[in-house]
């Protein structure tokens, strides 16, 4: 091949490959564009203060109310329960795996944790609805069939591997010198871990926790199956509620024609969800970079 033909071909290939990479920017642009377009149309009919601060959400009823707070409350409630399960458990698991576990145990446990993370969420929904809820109903007789507690707990189990593995990475990056310094002063492993290693890894662990919250907020199927479809501004985990994600599913399953206000609500709610998770992810990244700087 002549040199000019060859270099021309190389240039074309490079442009093609660049196009593939740049496509990812188009994806983000697409998400933002779609959300903005429909949310703007929505906000032309519903004032933003009513949307963000209203306490009743009945867009599908005859008497329409567009206050999103019940959905936000539902999301917050379920995510809060999930984090209450996943955070301590995940941290304990990370401490155990990083500081105590013999290699044989690690080799068995870590793949199993990965399996836990890989189970499809609709299967977790099944588990929450048909196993955990009846089980909890024996303990808490007032628990209704759809509630926030059961999907919250199951979601916590699903997120546990994420918290555990990210926290373990953070603990692992703490230089051994710190541990050895503590041991040299006569500390037990527990004292060294809890008083030196964990505080040193705190920003890394916080980054992990925030990422987990972001995951919990965006999770759809577990709540769609087991939490119910009753938007309710409450902190009571024993009654049916509805999360932002479950609402989007609810509307999508129906026959809502495009261009109607009902159709637009899912994009408005989606916009809120996107902004929330985006902010959390950004914050988590910032924390993680700060953590890396400390130890590199």
């Amino acid at each position: 091949m002549k040199r000019t033909t060859r270099s021309w071909l190389e240039r074309i290939i490079e442009q093609l490959l660049f196009g593939c990479a740049a496509l990812s920017i188009l994806v983000t642009a697409g998400i933002v564009a779609v959300l903005i377009f429909e949310t703007a149309a929505f906000l032309r009919e519903v004032p933003i203060t009513q949307f963000l601060f209203g306490t009743e959400w009945t867009p599908l009823f005859y008497n329409k109310k567009f206050g999103v707070l019940p959905l936000v409350a539902g999301t917050a409630l379920v995510s809060g329960i999930a984090m209450a399960v996943a955070l301590p458990a995940g941290l304990l698991s990370a401490i155990y795996l990083s500081e105590y576990a013999p290699p044989r145990v690690r080799r068995i446990v870590k793949p199993i944790l990965e399996v836990l993370a890989g189970v499809p969420t609709v299967v977790y929904g099944y588990f929450a609805l048909l196993f955990v809820t009846p089980m909890l109903q024996n303990l808490l007789p007032g628990l209704s069939g759809f509630n926030a507690l059961s999907p919250g707990i199951v979601m916590g189990i699903m997120i546990l591997p994420l918290v555990s593995s990210l926290s373990e990475d953070a603990l692992h990056s703490v230089p051994n010198g710190l541990r050895e310094g503590a041991y040299a002063l006569g500390a037990t492993r527990m004292q060294a871990t809890l008083r030196v290693v964990v505080p040193a890894a705190l920003s890394g662990i916080s980054a992990a926790a925030i990422l987990a919250v972001s995951r919990a907020i965006g999770e759809t199927m577990i709540v769609a199956v087991a939490a119910g479809q009753q938007p309710r501004l409450t902190l009571n985990p024993l009654v049916p509620i509805e999360t932002m994600t479950a609402f989007i599913v609810q509307v999508s399953m129906g026959d809502t024609p495009a261009g109607t206000i009902e159709y637009r609500t899912i994009f408005a709610v989606g916009m809120l969800l996107f902004l929330g998770t985006f902010a959390l992810n950004l914050f988590s990244n910032w924390l993680r970079n700060r953590f890396r700087e400390e130890y590199q």
Binding site: L35, T220, S252, L273
Partner: peptide, 10 residues
Amino acid sequence: GVPSIIYGLL
């Protein structure tokens, strides 16, 4: 890190 349901909206 974007929730999968947002991709659905896209």
